[in-house]
Design a protein around this nucleic acid. Structure first.
Lengths: 230, 230
DNA sequence: ACCTGAACACCGTTCAAGT
DNA sequence: ACCTGAACACCGTTCAAGT
């Protein structure tokens, strides 16, 4: 990598005269975000990791936001690829599951997407793949776009809100809070406690909801073919 | 409110000797977050708004995180109330739409929920209402919990990722990025451009997806009643 | 051209002190 | 008991200077 840690904790590049590349900076930023999350990311720490003065980073990116935008493009670009085999339902499920897995593996992407939509080649290829599958399944361009967006939003929502970083801790916490509830005030919650806890971790819950959405889309597509063939 | 702005921009309390209450601090924090968002919230600014030294805030809350947790509890507590009339599908849709409207109105709640689940009385009442509706519709406690969670996650996802703060700007940006695409490389996207843009703003897209989820749940509940009445 | 140190206006928070 | 100023270890970023 051309970078090694000095005893003082500050990285020194093997050859200080070698010009940094945009990609080197982005790769280091991506790694930092993966390791410690968006919260503890800083330009100064990134510079230290690169063995460079903080201000050097500004030679490559206008400011923090521009850098994070570039990180998103850099990363999202390599994220999605394989189109699955099978009928449209299976292929659509495969696409969204891939996305979900990637988002869960890199939670900071979800946080960054909160601020700004992602419109780079990688995400475009993903959209193209999804719309193609839906088109081949008989969805008109309008219906396909709406269906895709619902699936996409649900997938992002599941990654963001359905999978707490420390699932075991979240389940324990939730269990004790739910156990403390007044059963006469919250009877329905009390009845569902174990199931509610189960929906917090794992991928089952994501796949269940995804399946429901796909069921409804399949039903609508079928109905459209039979009753409204315009 | 007992607070007025001085010429120097620093708030002065009407009676400096009047002890601050936890609720005063929380109300001010909530208002700040509503006006300027989580990004520009700071303890120091909050203190200034309260007409008090920064360190005074620490007399009421252990640290920034504890304060934000309390803000979430304070606000979410008053958020949800009315249970709608009608069949279970209508009532469920009403509940989730209320939640969606509140989240869109206070985006920082969505950002905070990213870090931590909400387990206060207000959110419990919401869960109880949802599970009750589903229970009356014939869902077993387990099925109800799973259905509720899918609807809940989808609703949070829509508020977080489906409604950009500046919709008009986001649509313009997206339109120009999509217009620049190579039509032979992205034919399906090109065909769907207008529809894709349409899914970005407004509540129609949220309601469409919500409707699909409810359709699938209704179908499953119906099938369960007919075929697996255990 | 590429990198940098010093400085500025901000943070959250500890600590010891004020009333 | 309640509030505070000074100080510390951090931020992002501007600017003028170094090679």
């Amino acid at each position: 990598m051309g970078v090694s840690m000095g005893v003082d904790g500050r990285a020194r590049r093997a050859d200080p005269r070698a010009k940094l590349s945009h990609e080197q900076v982005l790769r280091a930023a991506w790694a930092m975000l993966d390791e410690a999350g968006l919260e503890s990311f800083s330009i100064r720490r990134l510079a230290q990791r690169l063995g460079v003065a903080p201000m050097t980073v500004y030679g490559y990116f206008r400011d923090r936001d521009a850098l994070l935008d570039a990180v998103l493009d850099y990363g999202a670009d390599g994220l999605i690829v394989a189109a699955a085999e099978g009928d449209w339902r299976t292929r659509m499920s495969g696409l969204m599951s891939q996305l979900h897995r990637q988002l869960v593996a890199h939670p900071f992407v979800v946080e960054l997407r909160l601020r700004r939509p992602i419109l780079n080649p990688g995400s475009m290829r993903f959209t193209e793949a999804g719309l193609t599958v839906l088109g081949e399944a008989g969805f008109a361009p309008e219906q396909g776009a709406r269906a895709f967006r619902a699936l996409f939003i649900y997938t992002f929502g599941s990654a963001a809100f359905g999978m707490p970083p420390d699932a075991a801790h979240a389940q324990r916490e939730t269990r004790s809070r739910l156990a403390a509830l007044d059963e006469t005030e919250f009877p329905a919650v009390a009845r569902s406690v174990p199931a509610l806890i189960d929906t917090i971790a794992g991928e089952e819950q994501f796949h269940r909801g995804l399946g429901w959405l796909l069921d409804a889309l399949a039903a609508e597509a079928g109905a459209g073919k039979e009753k409204e063939p315009r």
